[in-house]
Protein backbone atom coordinates (compact mmCIF):
# COMPACT_ATOMS: atom_id res chain seq x y z
CA UNK A 1 0.00 0.00 0.00
CA UNK A 2 1.56 3.23 -1.12
CA UNK A 3 2.10 5.62 1.69
CA UNK A 4 3.96 8.41 -0.02
CA UNK A 5 4.08 9.14 -3.68
CA UNK A 6 5.77 11.93 -5.60
CA UNK A 7 4.64 12.36 -9.16
CA UNK A 8 6.89 14.38 -11.43
CA UNK A 9 7.63 16.93 -8.75
CA UNK A 10 9.38 20.09 -9.84
CA UNK A 11 10.86 22.65 -7.46
CA UNK A 12 12.65 25.84 -8.38
CA UNK A 13 14.06 28.68 -6.37
CA UNK A 14 16.12 31.78 -6.80
CA UNK A 15 19.59 32.27 -5.58
CA UNK A 16 20.83 35.76 -6.18
CA UNK A 17 19.97 36.37 -9.80
CA UNK A 18 19.96 32.81 -10.98
CA UNK A 19 17.11 30.41 -10.99
CA UNK A 20 18.02 26.94 -9.84
CA UNK A 21 16.01 23.83 -10.49
CA UNK A 22 16.25 21.84 -7.29
CA UNK A 23 13.97 18.97 -8.27
CA UNK A 24 13.54 18.02 -11.87
CA UNK A 25 10.45 15.88 -12.39
CA UNK A 26 11.12 13.54 -9.50
CA UNK A 27 8.82 10.54 -9.19
CA UNK A 28 8.96 8.19 -6.25
CA UNK A 29 6.72 5.71 -4.49
CA UNK A 30 7.14 4.46 -0.99
CA UNK A 31 5.18 1.71 0.67
CA UNK A 32 4.59 0.89 4.26
CA UNK A 33 7.70 -0.44 5.92
CA UNK A 34 10.04 0.60 3.12
CA UNK A 35 13.52 1.66 3.97
CA UNK A 36 14.77 3.74 1.08
CA UNK A 37 18.08 5.54 0.84
CA UNK A 38 18.92 8.26 -1.62
CA UNK A 39 22.46 9.13 -2.36
CA UNK A 40 23.49 12.48 -3.80
CA UNK A 41 26.12 15.13 -3.65
CA UNK A 42 25.54 18.44 -1.92
CA UNK A 43 23.32 20.83 -3.72
CA UNK A 44 21.67 17.93 -5.48
CA UNK A 45 18.33 18.74 -3.97
CA UNK A 46 18.23 16.16 -1.19
CA UNK A 47 16.96 18.50 1.46
CA UNK A 48 14.43 20.03 -0.88
CA UNK A 49 13.13 16.59 -1.71
CA UNK A 50 12.52 15.88 1.94
CA UNK A 51 10.86 19.23 2.58
CA UNK A 52 8.51 18.68 -0.30
CA UNK A 53 7.75 15.15 0.86
CA UNK A 54 6.94 16.46 4.32
CA UNK A 55 4.58 19.07 2.97
CA UNK A 56 6.64 21.94 4.28
CA UNK A 57 7.21 23.29 0.80
CA UNK A 58 4.83 23.15 -2.06
CA UNK A 59 6.16 21.89 -5.37
CA UNK A 60 6.12 24.16 -8.36
CA UNK A 61 5.04 21.28 -10.55
CA UNK A 62 3.75 17.75 -10.07
CA UNK A 63 2.07 16.44 -6.95
CA UNK A 64 2.82 14.87 -3.60
CA UNK A 65 0.39 12.38 -2.16
CA UNK A 66 0.46 11.08 1.38
CA UNK A 67 -1.82 8.24 2.30
CA UNK A 68 -3.99 8.90 -0.69
CA UNK A 69 -4.41 12.60 -0.03
CA UNK A 70 -2.74 15.15 -2.21
CA UNK A 71 -0.89 17.52 0.06
CA UNK A 72 -1.47 20.58 -2.05
CA UNK A 73 -5.23 20.28 -1.59
CA UNK A 74 -5.06 19.97 2.15
CA UNK A 75 -5.62 23.08 4.20
CA UNK A 76 -2.68 24.36 6.22
CA UNK A 77 -4.13 23.05 9.40
CA UNK A 78 -4.24 19.49 8.14
CA UNK A 79 -0.80 19.60 6.73
CA UNK A 80 0.46 20.85 10.03
CA UNK A 81 -1.28 18.03 11.81
CA UNK A 82 0.24 15.51 9.44
CA UNK A 83 3.62 16.90 10.24
CA UNK A 84 2.96 16.70 13.93
CA UNK A 85 1.44 13.27 14.13
CA UNK A 86 2.33 11.19 11.14
CA UNK A 87 5.57 12.41 9.70
CA UNK A 88 8.80 12.52 11.65
CA UNK A 89 11.74 14.50 10.34
CA UNK A 90 15.41 14.35 11.17
CA UNK A 91 17.03 17.45 9.73
CA UNK A 92 20.63 18.00 8.96
CA UNK A 93 20.96 21.28 10.81
CA UNK A 94 20.16 19.36 13.95
CA UNK A 95 19.00 21.83 16.56
CA UNK A 96 16.58 21.48 19.36
CA UNK A 97 13.58 23.68 19.77
CA UNK A 98 14.87 27.00 20.87
CA UNK A 99 14.74 27.45 24.58
CA UNK A 100 13.90 23.92 25.61
CA UNK A 101 15.94 21.23 27.25
CA UNK A 102 16.65 18.00 25.40
CA UNK A 103 13.92 16.08 27.16
CA UNK A 104 11.32 18.77 26.62
CA UNK A 105 12.29 19.01 23.00
CA UNK A 106 11.67 15.33 22.50
CA UNK A 107 8.43 15.59 24.43
CA UNK A 108 7.15 18.59 22.48
CA UNK A 109 5.28 16.72 19.73
CA UNK A 110 3.19 14.93 22.32
CA UNK A 111 2.27 18.08 24.20
CA UNK A 112 -0.50 18.96 21.87
CA UNK A 113 -2.80 16.20 22.90
CA UNK A 114 -1.41 14.75 26.07
CA UNK A 115 -0.58 15.96 29.52
CA UNK A 116 2.98 17.01 30.03
CA UNK A 117 3.74 14.23 32.44
CA UNK A 118 2.63 11.71 29.86
CA UNK A 119 4.60 13.50 27.17
CA UNK A 120 7.76 13.46 29.22
CA UNK A 121 7.31 9.82 29.95
CA UNK A 122 7.00 9.03 26.27
CA UNK A 123 10.07 11.10 25.60
CA UNK A 124 12.14 9.30 28.20
CA UNK A 125 11.07 5.99 26.81
CA UNK A 126 11.97 6.97 23.28
CA UNK A 127 15.36 8.29 24.30
CA UNK A 128 15.99 4.98 25.97
CA UNK A 129 15.06 3.15 22.81
CA UNK A 130 17.50 5.04 20.67
CA UNK A 131 20.19 4.65 23.25
CA UNK A 132 20.40 8.26 24.34
CA UNK A 133 18.90 8.15 27.79
CA UNK A 134 21.83 9.98 29.36
CA UNK A 135 21.22 12.95 27.09
CA UNK A 136 17.92 13.83 28.68
CA UNK A 137 19.31 16.36 31.13
CA UNK A 138 22.32 17.44 29.14
CA UNK A 139 22.83 20.73 27.37
CA UNK A 140 22.65 20.58 23.64
CA UNK A 141 26.11 21.96 23.12
CA UNK A 142 27.62 19.34 25.36
CA UNK A 143 26.34 16.51 23.24
CA UNK A 144 28.45 14.74 20.70
CA UNK A 145 27.30 14.55 17.12
CA UNK A 146 26.24 10.97 17.55
CA UNK A 147 24.13 11.80 20.55
CA UNK A 148 22.56 14.71 18.76
CA UNK A 149 21.54 12.54 15.90
CA UNK A 150 20.05 10.02 18.27
CA UNK A 151 18.10 12.72 20.04
CA UNK A 152 16.79 13.96 16.71
CA UNK A 153 15.66 10.47 15.81
CA UNK A 154 13.94 10.12 19.16
CA UNK A 155 12.23 13.43 18.58
CA UNK A 156 11.00 12.18 15.25
CA UNK A 157 9.87 8.82 16.53
CA UNK A 158 8.15 9.93 19.73
CA UNK A 159 5.06 10.83 17.80
CA UNK A 160 4.85 7.29 16.39
CA UNK A 161 4.95 8.44 12.82
CA UNK A 162 4.10 6.49 9.74
CA UNK A 163 6.79 8.15 7.71
CA UNK A 164 10.30 9.05 8.80
CA UNK A 165 12.33 11.46 6.73
CA UNK A 166 16.00 11.75 7.52
CA UNK A 167 18.44 14.22 5.97
CA UNK A 168 21.95 12.81 6.07
CA UNK A 169 21.67 11.60 9.65
CA UNK A 170 24.94 9.75 9.32
CA UNK A 171 27.04 12.80 8.50
CA UNK A 172 29.55 13.58 11.22
CA UNK A 173 29.30 10.11 12.67
CA UNK A 174 32.07 7.64 12.79
CA UNK A 175 31.88 4.14 11.45
CA UNK A 176 30.48 2.53 14.56
CA UNK A 177 27.84 5.13 15.10
CA UNK A 178 26.73 4.94 11.54
CA UNK A 179 26.26 1.22 11.86
CA UNK A 180 24.19 1.66 14.95
CA UNK A 181 22.02 4.34 13.47
CA UNK A 182 21.31 2.44 10.29
CA UNK A 183 20.45 -0.65 12.29
CA UNK A 184 18.07 1.37 14.34
CA UNK A 185 16.37 2.81 11.30
CA UNK A 186 16.16 -0.54 9.70
CA UNK A 187 14.56 -2.07 12.76
CA UNK A 188 12.12 0.80 12.96
CA UNK A 189 11.15 0.17 9.37
CA UNK A 190 10.88 -3.56 9.64
CA UNK A 191 9.55 -4.03 13.17
CA UNK A 192 7.33 -0.98 13.54
CA UNK A 193 6.33 -0.69 9.95
CA UNK A 194 7.52 2.86 9.61
CA UNK A 195 8.41 3.99 6.12
CA UNK A 196 11.90 5.44 6.14
CA UNK A 197 13.33 7.74 3.52
CA UNK A 198 16.92 8.60 4.21
CA UNK A 199 19.38 10.82 2.44
CA UNK A 200 22.98 9.81 2.67
CA UNK A 201 26.30 11.02 1.35
CA UNK A 202 28.18 7.76 1.50
CA UNK A 203 27.65 4.31 0.24
CA UNK A 204 28.20 1.73 2.94
CA UNK A 205 25.01 2.29 4.86
CA UNK A 206 23.03 2.60 1.73
CA UNK A 207 23.54 -1.07 1.25
CA UNK A 208 21.54 -1.83 4.33
CA UNK A 209 18.48 -0.20 2.86
CA UNK A 210 15.82 -1.93 0.89
CA UNK A 211 16.12 0.31 -2.09
CA UNK A 212 18.68 2.72 -3.30
CA UNK A 213 18.50 5.70 -5.59
CA UNK A 214 20.62 8.65 -6.40
CA UNK A 215 19.77 12.26 -6.85
CA UNK A 216 21.85 14.20 -9.30
CA UNK A 217 21.11 17.85 -9.78
CA UNK A 218 17.47 17.41 -9.12
CA UNK A 219 17.01 14.31 -11.12
CA UNK A 220 16.19 11.10 -9.35
CA UNK A 221 17.95 8.18 -10.86
CA UNK A 222 16.73 4.78 -9.97
CA UNK A 223 19.02 1.87 -10.44
CA UNK A 224 18.39 -0.25 -13.45
CA UNK A 225 17.34 -3.12 -11.33
CA UNK A 226 14.41 -2.64 -9.02
CA UNK A 227 14.83 -5.93 -7.36
CA UNK A 228 15.38 -5.61 -3.67
CA UNK A 229 18.44 -6.62 -1.87
CA UNK A 230 20.69 -6.88 -4.91
CA UNK A 231 24.04 -5.32 -4.92
CA UNK A 232 23.56 -2.21 -6.85
CA UNK A 233 25.91 -1.11 -9.51
CA UNK A 234 26.39 2.63 -9.20
CA UNK A 235 25.41 4.53 -12.28
CA UNK A 236 28.03 6.56 -13.98
CA UNK A 237 27.82 10.07 -12.61
CA UNK A 238 27.66 13.09 -14.74
CA UNK A 239 30.46 15.58 -15.05
CA UNK A 240 30.75 18.02 -12.21
CA UNK A 241 28.49 21.03 -11.93
Amino acid sequence: MTLLSLDRVVKRYWRGYREIVALDEVSLELERGDFVAVWGSSRSGKTTLLRVAAGIEAPDGGSVTFDGQELATLPRKHRARLLLEQIGCVWQAGRITHGLSVLDHVALPRLKHHSHTQARRDATEMLERVGARQCAQAHWYELSDGDRTRVAVAHALVRRPRLLLADEPTANLNMIEREQLVSLLRSVAEDAGVTVLMMAPDAPELLRSHRLMSLDHGRLIKPRSERRGELIDFPARGRGA
Binding site: D202, A203, F234, A236, G240
Partner: peptide, 21 residues
Protein backbone atom coordinates in the same frame (compact mmCIF):
# COMPACT_ATOMS: atom_id res chain seq x y z
CA UNK B 1 38.52 6.24 1.23
CA UNK B 2 34.78 6.00 0.55
CA UNK B 3 33.34 5.46 -2.87
CA UNK B 4 31.71 8.83 -2.73
CA UNK B 5 34.99 10.58 -2.22
CA UNK B 6 35.90 12.76 -5.10
CA UNK B 7 39.49 13.63 -5.51
CA UNK B 8 40.90 16.72 -7.04
CA UNK B 9 41.23 15.24 -10.47
CA UNK B 10 37.46 14.74 -10.75
CA UNK B 11 37.68 11.09 -11.50
CA UNK B 12 35.16 8.51 -10.54
CA UNK B 13 35.29 5.72 -8.15
CA UNK B 14 32.89 2.89 -8.32
CA UNK B 15 32.16 -0.03 -6.19
CA UNK B 16 31.65 -0.44 -2.56
CA UNK B 17 34.76 -2.28 -1.81
CA UNK B 18 35.65 -0.58 1.38
CA UNK B 19 38.83 -1.36 3.13
CA UNK B 20 38.50 -2.08 6.75
CA UNK B 21 39.82 0.73 8.88
Amino acid sequence: PTPAAEDATGGERAGAGARAP
